[in-house]
Amino acid sequence: MSETDLDIPQLLDSVAAAATNELQAREIRSPILVGIHTGGVWVAEALHERLQARPPVGTLEVAFHRDDHASSGLKAAVQSSEVPVSLQDQPVLLVDDVIHTGRTTRAALNALFDYGRPSQVLLAVLVDRGGRELPIQPDIAGTRLTLPAGQRLKLRGPEPLRFTLEGGPS
């Protein structure tokens, strides 16, 4: 495991600025921020502060919607989803720390719709590391970089937030 030199406050500022522009362009005043457990929740909370968003942050556990249960099983530490407001006809800003294959986002979208039919969903991530296996792209990314498939970029937190790299190039 090694630390990275990714500057988290800077990435958060840049995601917040891009999100503000995108939300304005779409005439969205008050999006509901929903973070994907665990890293995405920390990012959503930090963005919530920067965007001065009103509705409380929702959290989403996607373990029960993943497509690899039959091969990889259920992860050990399953969290609980908590979506405190109805998503019906509301704009949602879905937040994750890293987008890689797109499978987590796919699972998150399915989990999200169990809480109602949002009017629209935007996806914001701190890091887009490429390597997509599904046709899913973030609307907002703090930075884009290319990593070998075998390496895992993981957000550690909650205080301070930092990225670590695990596993060698495969």
């Binding site: 890293g39 990889s72 050990a76 294959t101 895992r152 970029l153």
Partner: peptide, 8 residues
């Protein structure tokens, strides 16, 4: 090993 969350 123990199954961890896989970023992606």
């Amino acid at each position: 090993g123990p199954i961890e969350e896989v970023a992606g």
